[in-house]
């Protein structure tokens, strides 16, 4: 069982997620491939963390380790003060391809993880979360009848239906068109404010990372390492045309520029 004990003397417990010296290797054709190297990340309750990096930099693996879908051997990964040993109801997850089960109606998809509840409680939870994401009129629709943005809303509702303390989002808006994406970014911020859920989101969209993240984790590729964690200004980062927004953007761009062009000197000067 997980609980949210706080300030019990152990410093680790003030963090909802605590990752220390995490290394991860995969065996490909019996050859070890280093995926993550010395990852250190602490997430506080109610924070919104965004992770940006090249595709293949191991950020999805990192997220799956956080929720317990992928095992780790080397380092510490704690959720709510306990070492992660597998998926748990306190940790929800939203994938890029919404992964709604096509044979279930939206209400049943949202209630998919609520097996432990009574029928009435389950119905109540489903209704509540469909309202939260603005899909209460689509409870009896099938996923194929929904647009991409609506499907992703339903997936978010499913991720939140268990009332998790943490919601992990793996490029949830990556497949949406630009306008829907901006709409969804506003929605997820509203939901986070309403629910107070701690969120960790992977994205390859730098604007999205700045707009949503209280802190932005910049990762390099092969092996995945944290290059920097940028703390954003809570007001200025929500204005896409502010000077500070542009500065964050430049800073993150430069990391990737350095990565691809290998102009290390330039990066050091900045």
């Amino acid at each position: 069982m997980e609980n949210t004990r706080q300030n019990t003397g152990r410093t680790g417990n003030e963090y909802i997620i605590n990752i220390e010296h995490l290394n991860k290797q995969f065996l490909v054709d019996k050859q070890p491939i280093e995926v993550l190297r010395d990852i250190n990340l602490q997430v506080k309750k109610g924070e919104f963390i965004t992770i940006v990096g090249h595709s293949g930099c191991g950020k999805s693996t990192l997220l799956k380790i956080m929720c317990g879908l992928v095992s780790y051997e080397d380092g510490t990964v704690e959720r709510n003060g306990h070492a992660v040993a597998g998926p748990g109801p306190k940790c929800g997850m939203v994938f890029q391809d919404h992964r709604l089960l096509p044979w279930l109606k939206i209400k049943d998809n949202v209630g998919f993880g609520l097996r432990h509840l009574s029928k009435e409680e389950k119905e109540q939870q489903v209704k509540e979360h469909l309202e939260l994401v603005g899909l209460k009129d689509f409870a009896n629709s099938y996923p194929s009848q929904l647009s991409g943005g609506m499907s992703q809303r339903a997936a978010i509702a499913r991720g939140l239906a268990n009332k998790p303390t943490i919601l992990l989002l793996d490029e949830p808006f990556g497949a949406l068109d630009a306008l829907t994406r901006i709409q969804m970014q506003k929605e997820i911020l509203r939901i986070q404010e309403e629910q107070g859920t701690t969120m960790v989101m992977i994205t390859h969209d730098i604007d999205e990372a700045i707009y949503l993240g209280n802190r932005i984790v910049v990762m390099s590729a092969r092996p995945g390492e944290i290059k920097e964690i940028i703390k954003t200004d809570p007001v200025e980062s929500k204005k896409r045309d502010s000077i500070l927004f542009a500065k964050y953007k430049k800073k993150i761009y430069d990391y990737f520029f350095e990565d691809t062009e290998e102009e290390h000197d330039v990066a050091y000067v900045i």
Partner: peptide
């Protein structure tokens, strides 16, 4: 991906079969 959803919600082997693979 569907099987991963089943793992995320800790469905056992039989439940994973009846709720995901079979449908």
């Amino acid at each position: 991906g569907y099987a991963e959803v089943a793992r995320l919600y800790k469905l056992g082997k039989w439940k994973t079969f009846t709720k995901v693979y079979l449908p």
